[in-house]
Design a protein around this nucleic acid. Structure first.
Lengths: 169, 169
DNA sequence: GCCCAAATTGAGAATGATTATTATTTACTT
DNA sequence: AAGTAAATAATAATCATTCTCAATTTGGGC
């Protein structure tokens, strides 16, 4: 069985639920919703579908618009509410930057860090083993045993740098 | 001359302006405002005074309320505007957490990161030049120009490790 | 000190993201 | 299938922050 990139955390010994990037099973999604102690509704399934197949790091608004194409009767409060539930139970991870709208992604199975553009909010994911090794070293230095970490880099992406350079009067 | 904890960044070769925690000079504050290419006004001086003498990590609202006691005619747009200027030029650092209002502190002279014990909450501050160099490298790799970063390590401190080992239920 | 252009201000309106309210509909238990 | 607690859509409300703009203040020359 081929495993995909995302697992809905928190992972539990026996009942890991893994969602495949491109194809996934309606029943898996339903199981996931029940695991949150919520009722299965068509709206929640739509939101999950959109989250699974779309690009990562979407805003609530973007998700809403995408879903509205299929079901124009959905309300955005529903999207926000469900995202909040998912975030509280760590099934999605919320990333906030400056005053920009929050972005959400299915909580990735393997950790990565973020490089965020402070102008447009674009997020680049990266992983750097050297940095992680140094983090371990720092922790050891102070006698700590390390559990996890948050590393967020903020800067200006190439596109926004270009825009600034040309648009400057 | 005794140096205090804060320096208004960006530090420049010849004209570092250092503000003392408890006592500071009106002229220093004026020089600081001019360095931002702004005009000196009583409102801006009040805001700086409040920032200097107050505790760190205040919200714009808290600052506004504190200042309003001395000058009830001040508008909060003025506070927000000035904080934005200061933040853009790195004289204050904005910290955002969840959807909560932003908090501001005078940019500390030396950057540090946090190593936090997830059991007792103890925080150890550290600085690691190697990690920062690697961060720059990652940013460059993606064409980003880096502004700042947040690195938080979470683990268990030596004391709590000992407690756990002995006090195991 | 006085003048004036340009910068700054306060008040309140505007904005944008997110949350609360509520009347109605829907999902799950028995 | 029926009852009930939860979920929904629509919309109003909220909250932080920014914008607008008329009135005031600042700083650089005279």
């Amino acid at each position: 069985m081929e495993k995909s990139e995302f697992t809905f955390l928190p992972r539990q010994k026996d009942e890991d639920i893994t969602i495949h990037d491109d194809s996934y099973d309606e029943d898996e999604l339903k199981a996931l919703i029940r695991r949150l102690n919520l009722k299965v509704t068509s709206q929640r399934l739509l939101i999950l579908h959109a989250l699974c197949e779309g690009r990562r790091h979407v805003t609530a608004q973007e998700l809403y618009e995408k879903i509205a194409k299929q079901d124009s009767s959905i309300g955005f409060a529903t999207v926000y509410r469900f995202l909040r539930h998912m975030n509280e139970q760590k099934f999605v991870t919320e990333v906030r930057m400056g005053g920009l709208p929050a972005r959400y992604e299915l909580t990735p199975k393997s950790h990565h860090d973020h490089l965020t553009c402070s102008d447009c909010g674009q997020i680049v994911e990266f992983e750097n083993k050297q940095i992680e090794a140094l983090q371990e070293k720092v922790a050891k230095q102070f006698g700590f045993s390390l559990n996890h970490h948050v590393l967020e880099l903020y800067g200006v992406c190439p596109k926004c740098q270009a825009t600034k350079a040309s648009g400057k009067k």
